[in-house]
Design a protein around this nucleic acid. Sequence first.
DNA 1: ATGTCTCAGGGACTGAGA
Length: 258
Amino acid sequence: MKIATWNVNSLKVRLPHVLDWLAQQRPDVLCLQELKMEDKVFPMEAITAAGYHAAICGQKTYNGVAILARKEPIAVERGIGGFEDEQRRVISASIEGDSGALRIVCAYMPNGQSIDSDKYQYKLRWLQALTVWLRAELEKYPRLVLLGDYNIAPEDRDVHDPEAWRGQVLCSEPERAAFKALLELGFNDAFRRFDQPEKSFSWWDYRMQGFRRNLGLRIDHILLSQALAGHCKACSIDKAPRKLERPSDHAPVFVELA
DNA sequence: ATGTCTCAGGGACTGAGA
């Protein structure tokens, strides 16, 4: 089972890249974030023609998430249970797997803007609600994958210039503590189960030729529940789509589960 | 170095968000 996540920064703009990537990589599941479109304009025909089902939770202008899967997603739920949120950031579904169903939770976690912003306080509240909700979801669905754009660089090695970013949004201690709180639920960071190249990142600012200079952060993550971690055979970041014309600022991240 | 990209409103450009 190949399971991937990609913040596409507008599915309308990035649809050709997504279709190419599906054709080349043939993931079983691809979770998308920042669709920036309403459900009624989701390109369902193109996704179906590519051989995928889609569970979608769209929104005009901002946010919006989807789960694309070769097998039909079932028991689809939207949002964080018990947390009212106008922003469409979470969609969950079960997917039939080789050794039992998997629960997929696709999340576009808040950016926070800056640590003195109201949006940062919203981010911390949101992460707390996510953690409370996931504790119960893990009881219901022990075989759970939590993946998406976390907007958190968990450690200094996930940051191109840790001193410049110290205490800044995406790297601040409260955000890193929220990430650790997710790990304490029993989740395992798939990427760090394997040897990886130094300075591996999943996002690069469009400005300042950030990609060419590898001025990036690793903020897109795939966390595996305890029941799944031992089945993980690989985890990689695919930088190739970031090199195309009109790229997303994020690269896809994927795992292989036995 | 307020840098680049995307979207909405409104019909050129500005502001919001990332």
